[in-house]
């Protein structure tokens, strides 16, 4: 990738990372909006999917009646294997009209005063729509890993909490979630990895505008969707090399986010054993 990116690497230097203009015609390449787009869509996706998937996993493994567990768990895990282009189609067919018709106008009228949720909504194809699609895609992953981690908690841990007079929910919180937290964090990081790199479903729903307006309901672009959009039509050595360099940046950003997440987990897990309260 370094070789592929070698024409553009020295030419733009750090301007590549911080530049906001992507203009292949004039040979100006800056990917700051796409870096932001990637981080923001993945961030929102996690905000939506983490509570959802962990909640679903807790319900399924701790509280659901036995006959419900396996079928629902199986369906969730099946969702994790659906190709992303199918999620993209689902996004186009179902989510985009829904966002365009009801969610976006409501957000605009209720929160339009804030730059975060104002401005034109790109006909339903925008950052928020892509984030929701991503959330739906990573939920099965996080949920499946969380379910495995919860199932791995020994029975005597639950019973220890119950024997102290814990209710079922208290036992889940006190004994089960704490015991399984490393595995749950692992699932979240796995989901984050999928969200950061996801290409097809995002390309189909984000609106593909090479800018980041600051509003979540405006069209945008992520690093991977930009590559997917323009690679086939890239003409000239510099253009192609700039796209390869995006790939390189994406790799580094993903690596960086993962390292930060790991450090965070490491601190929580280690610090929690000694100082954190229940």
């Amino acid at each position: 990738m370094f070789t592929g990116a070698s024409p553009s690497l020295p030419r733009f230097g750090l301007r590549f990372l911080f530049g906001v203009v992507w203009d292949p015609v004039h040979g100006i390449f800056g990917v700051a909006p796409e870096i932001l787009g990637t981080l923001v869509t993945s961030g929102i996706a996690l905000l939506i999917s983490v509570p959802l998937s962990i909640g679903a996993a807790i319900f399924l493994s701790e509280h659901a009646p036995a006959w419900l567990r396996d079928p629902v768990g199986y369906v969730i895990e099946l969702l994790a294997a659906v190709p992303s282009v199918v999620f993209g189609f689902w996004g186009l067919a179902v989510l985009v009209p829904l966002m365009q018709g009801s969610v976006d106008p409501w957000l605009q009228s209720a929160f339009g005063w804030s730059p975060l949720l104002g401005g034109p909504n790109g006909g339903g194809r925008n950052i928020l729509t892509a984030s929701v699609v991503l959330a739906v895609m990573v939920t099965p992953t996080i949920s499946a890993v969380t379910r495995e981690s919860l199932a791995a908690v020994p029975r005597d841990q639950r019973e220890a909490a119950l024997s102290l007079g814990a209710t079922r929910w208290e036992a889940t919180r006190l004994a089960v979630l704490r015991y399984a937290r490393t595995g749950i964090f692992g699932g979240i990081i796995l989901g984050l990895g999928r969200a950061l790199g996801e290409t097809m479903a995002v390309t189909m729903t984000i609106g593909n505008k090479n800018a980041f307006s600051g509003s979540l309901i405006s069209p945008g672009q992520t690093m991977s969707s930009l590559i997917a959009n323009e690679f086939t039509e890239a003409t000239g050595k510099l253009y192609v090399s700039a796209l390869v360099e995006i790939g390189l940046v994406l790799l580094l950003v993903t690596l960086l986010v993962n390292i930060v997440a790991r450090l965070l987990v490491w601190r929580v897990v280690r610090g929690g054993a000694v100082a954190g309260g229940a």
């Binding site: 841990q157 019973e159 220890a160 897990v269």
Partner: peptide, 19 residues
């Protein structure tokens, strides 16, 4: 079966904190 994520203090006080 002590709670593995908790300190000695937290283990002993877990039931009281539940209450």
């Amino acid at each position: 079966n002590p709670f593995p994520t908790m300190s000695v203090y937290q283990n002993v006080s877990a039931g009281l904190r539940l209450n």
